[in-house]
């Protein structure tokens, strides 16, 4: 296995494109190194992105934030501007593993590892995060929900990598939240998760919403029916119940060592309801 730490994105793309064997991008490494140690993956090339200028930066852009592909979760959570704008996204990122893991793990890696239970992804999806992908044919911007396809599989082409994630400016009266369920209080993979963004008008009526659920299908799912259950309502109990039902109905989980189908379908609805209440309070500026 070769280890390379290029200092330009072009060099990273060339290395990834030229490798005949298995090439993997190393940003935080908290998934990749575990997979290597467990013998689940034997890459021929590792491309470390942390030495590429900009990959470690969080910068303001058009009223929103562009987060470099190698920014660890802990740094995102120390960024006052970002956490004020998107507390739900930051909290999701803050739930990945331990304090130690958060010192390394990146949202980009969490996204590209394509695990259905990735904690930082649902809320980022809900707030409309867009990935900038660099590749042999130049750069393209893609809504992040279109990147994971199935466990361990993404829509990235050979030679492509995610350079940064763009979080657009938050509309007025908008709040986000993410909740997940785990059997302990920390250190577990989500058994179910829900990220949500709610926008209100001046009367407190929901005018826009986006709901994404995690760990209940082969990838994070955007549940339009769940958003529709909120839009046009004051996000009252009836709307929340409809939201929960829509999430439970949309979930297509499996039974495994972490939870059962019945449990996941039920609990994802509970989480949606609870997350919506938090997002609602945030949208109201409470």
């Amino acid at each position: 296995m070769r280890y390379e730490a290029p200092t330009t994105v072009e060099a990273a793309v060339s290395l990834l494109s030229a490798e005949a064997g298995l090439a993997k991008v190393l940003s935080g490494g908290t998934d990749l190194l575990v997979q290597m140690r467990m013998g689940m993956m034997e890459p021929d090339l590792i491309v470390d992105t942390k030495r590429i200028p900009g990959f470690g930066d969080i910068v303001e852009e058009n009223g929103g934030y562009r987060v470099g592909g190698a920014v660890p979760s802990a740094e995102l959570n120390e960024h006052a501007g970002f956490t004020a704008m998107y507390p739900g996204v930051a909290e999701g990122a803050d739930l990945i593993g331990s304090t130690q893991v958060q010192g390394r793990a990146t949202i980009t890696g969490n996204l590209c590892n394509a695990g259905p239970a990735a904690d930082s992804v649902p809320c980022a999806v809900a707030v409309g995060c867009v990935a900038r992908i660099a590749g042999p044919n130049g750069k393209r911007d893609v809504a992040i929900e279109d990147i994971p396809q199935a466990p361990g599989k993404t829509s990235l082409e050979k030679g492509e990598l995610v350079e940064s994630l763009f979080f657009p400016a938050k509309p007025a009266n908008t709040g986000d939240a993410y909740l997940r369920f785990i059997p302990r209080t920390e250190m577990d993979i989500a058994v179910a998760g829900c990220g949500i963004s709610i926008t209100l008008d001046d009367t407190g009526t929901c005018t826009a919403a986006k709901v994404a659920i995690g760990a209940v299908a082969i990838k994070v799912l955007v549940v339009d029916e769940a958003a529709q259950a909120l839009i046009g309502t004051k996000v009252d109990e009836a709307a929340l119940d409809a939201l929960a039902s829509a999430c439970s109905a949309a979930a297509k989980p499996i039974t495994d060592k972490r939870g059962t189908v019945e449990f996941r379908k039920e609990v994802v609805g509970v989480l949606a309801k609870r997350a919506a209440k938090i997002a609602l309070d945030r949208a109201k500026g409470a």
Binding site: Y3, A5, L26, G28, G29, T30, L33, V34, R37, M38, I46, D48, K50, P72, A74, G97, S98, T99, Q100, V101, G103, R104, M187
Partner: peptide
């Protein structure tokens, strides 16, 4: 695998697991 913390170190002052970091990095 980053689950126990017994290998904790700091890198540039930030707490991390040395088992989740390559020596080359």
């Amino acid at each position: 695998t980053g689950d126990c913390g017994a290998c904790s170190v700091t890198i540039d002052g930030r707490l991390t697991c040395s088992c989740l970091t390559l020596g080359a990095e």
